[in-house]
Design a protein around this nucleic acid. Structure first.
Ligand SMILES: [Mn+2]
Ligand SMILES: [Mn+2]
Ligand SMILES: [Zn+2]
Ligand SMILES: [Zn+2]
Lengths: 135, 135
DNA sequence: ATTTCAAATGCAACTATGTTGCGTTAATGT
DNA sequence: ACATTAACGCAACATAGTTGCATTTGAAAT
């Protein structure tokens, strides 16, 4: 009756499936960002690994989760927490060198001055070091 | 007679080889950061692709070049330009969505406020969008 | 210049990560 | 319940990065 979810880029209707729900739950309830391989291990035999890739892509395009590129190039995913509808991921991510957890720091938004002849569309700020638990 | 170069982490002596020199030249003279595969194509039959990986690791550990993690997770390398001997890569990198070039913006150093119970050791700030050439 | 010796290399084999095509299954609107 | 097509599983492929080991080579010492 009503559209449950759409790909915000192409305004295409997407569907809620068992695997998608389970993976979103996992990401939502995790205290740190999760990689594809971590999700694969945690979900065991929920679905094929290719399906996990496709579900993660879909959730990113639906603006429900966001990608975080770690310092070693590995990609992690975390829940989006947009207060306002305008949705820019300009917050900092912290990557702990000891426990290897990546966390969103929603309220740390760096300021910077960049020449006018650049157009910024997206932002990826990652700090690494020791988190409070490992300090 | 005199040590030409050392791994700053382990204070181990390293050697200058033909391939290392050529790859460093390439990175030094490039106006944008280069990935392993780009270097591999540009150097043709200079050396094995495994050797390129090892040379890049060595140059990073010698603090001669630095790693840049792109928004898609690909890793690029650029020359270090340290004025003072204290050496922190706290400058911004710009990743153009059109020409795909990644450039160092040495004089753009963002400011941020982070809780005291975090210890920051390294920084990776990447902005993406359109560069002056593509705007 | 020759010797010496570990750093660096080439090669093969391997693991990890991500993508594509296609036939089948299942979510959702009617 | 039926029709439509998004989502799925599977196999095959592509790309990125690692490891072990025998051989080569840079450069310090003689
Ligand atoms: Mn985040
Ligand atoms: Mn740089
Ligand atoms: Zn930690
Ligand atoms: Zn450009």
């Amino acid at each position: 009756m009503q559209l449950c979810c759409v790909n915000v880029l192409f305004m295409k209707v997407t569907r809620n499936t068992v695997a998608k729900g389970a993976i979103l739950d996992l990401i939502t309830n995790s205290d740190s960002a999760l990689s594809h391989s971590e999700i694969h291990k945690l979900t065991q035999d929920l679905c094929d690994r290719v399906t996990i890739y496709r579900i993660l892509d879909r959730l990113v395009n639906e603006d429900v989760i966001h990608k975080i590129v770690n310092l070693d190039g590995t990609i992690k995913y975390a829940k989006c927490h947009h207060e306002n509808h305008v949705h820019i991921h300009n917050h900092v991510h912290f990557s702990c060198e000891k426990c290897l957890k990546v966390t969103c720091m929603e309220n740390v938004q760096p300021s910077y001055i960049i020449p006018r002849n650049y157009k910024v569309n997206d932002v990826n700020f990652t700090l690494s070091g020791l988190c409070p638990n490992c300090l």
